[in-house]
Design a protein around this nucleic acid. Structure first.
Lengths: 219, 219
DNA sequence: AAGCTAACCGAACGAACGTTAGTTAGGCAA
DNA sequence: TTGCCTAACTAACGTTCGTTCGGTTAGCTT
């Protein structure tokens, strides 16, 4: 087991409810695994075909180009992530603290459940032409906006206090993103423990130590 | 200005004190910029040569292979990062809170000063064979261990309280890593503001909200 | 049985890849 | 001047890349 793996996970998981079937789906799963482990440019169409149990030419019966495969993977990944955090927040109470806990738990949960999908969606997106990545960037933006709205409401209500709300979004989002790289079921921590821990971290990060941010200056 | 850039920074900075000179250094700087923007596999030797104002074959007079160029970049990046956090911590007081502030400020400072170097060092390292990445992984490990030691001392002294100390290292480290991707001098926040903000975030994250972690259970 | 459709494959295309061999130009010691 | 060294160059090597094209199968409909 080499130490210089790109991520700790070893198996690719596509969404159980994906509408893809047969070879089309196996190609997608193989692409997720290979893109995650070696990167988009280093994973050849021949590699993907072999991993999917198919010949290279067959791939082009399902996808118009290698780039479109990546675009589909990124779209699926960001769609599931946004769906997850959105439904979690909607299912929580009206207290911004509950909403942040729900958001971060769902966010981390996505990265522990679909680590390879998360790695590809986040670190290979830049190779896509804007035409193919526009939808995905919109989804990412919506996820960020959702967190920022929660934080803004929390600051107005006095539950949260941060020097800069955008910086808090970047910090909380960033620490969640990295989970996909190191998380593994054999790591010693369960997915639930990581989600709970990060939710607690996010709460601490947003709430001033004196407990009531109303009395300190904000930007 | 396309939206799907891999990172916000536009200019590569090599360390001012690097011993490299002339073409050798220009090749290194060009490689940092191209590896950061397009990834190791997508940046060809011909691209690097053109950016360095040199012909492809000339590169092999300075580096034995493309892989060795990346290895050198990763080594320089991790060396500077470790040097930075280490000297910052040594220059701070004995209070773990001061040490964490010093560590995180230096860590974030590295990622805002050398964003391209940081992006390459952290996200392209996995393509290196173990033989070429061993030194770099050692440096990364030392940086992580340093933060963990600070946190451990802070927990023993009652200043810090976290459910899992390794999880705290991962969270603080992860949020700092991401800074290299979005930070830009034109972003609205100065490097100092980001460093101060993240240092504050790290302190909050480590210190229980009741202010004295001694009274709550630890794992 | 004939015909259609979707899926798949073998073979090959031109382009780009990392790398190498051999050559040239300039500076310097003898 | 001669010889040597360094640093850069030109040209090309063999390989792999993404992609395409023509043809073959399997399964269903009529």
């Amino acid at each position: 087991m080499p130490i210089n793996r790109r991520l700790a996970a070893t198996t690719a998981r596509l969404l159980p409810g994906s509408k893809q079937t047969g070879s089309s789906r196996r190609v997608l799963e193989a692409a997720i695994k290979l893109f995650a482990e070696h990167g988009y440019a280093s994973a050849s169409v021949r590699d993907i075909a072999a991993a999917a149990g198919v010949k290279p030419a067959t791939i082009y019966a399902h996808y118009p180009s290698k780039e479109h495969i990546l675009a589909e993977v990124c779209r699926i990944g960001h769609e599931e992530q946004y769906r997850g955090v959105r439904s979690a927040v909607l299912g929580s109470g009206a207290d911004p603290r509950d909403q942040i806990v729900a958001y971060v738990s769902a966010h981390v949960g996505f990265h522990t459940t679909y680590p390879m999908l998360a790695v590809v969606s986040n670190s290979e997106l830049h190779v896509l032409r804007e035409e193919l990545s526009a939808t995905t960037f919109l989804l990412r933006r919506q996820s960020e906006d959702l967190m920022q709205e929660i934080i803004t409401r929390g600051m107005q209500g006095g539950q949260f206090h941060v020097p800069d709300r955008w910086l808090a979004v970047a910090a909380i989002g960033g620490m969640g993103l990295r989970v996909a790289y190191w998380f593994s079921p054999e790591h010693g921590l369960t997915a639930g423990q990581v989600a709970d821990g990060y939710a607690e971290f996010a709460l601490r990060l947003l709430a001033a130590r004196d407990g009531h941010g109303k009395h300190t200056a904000a930007t």
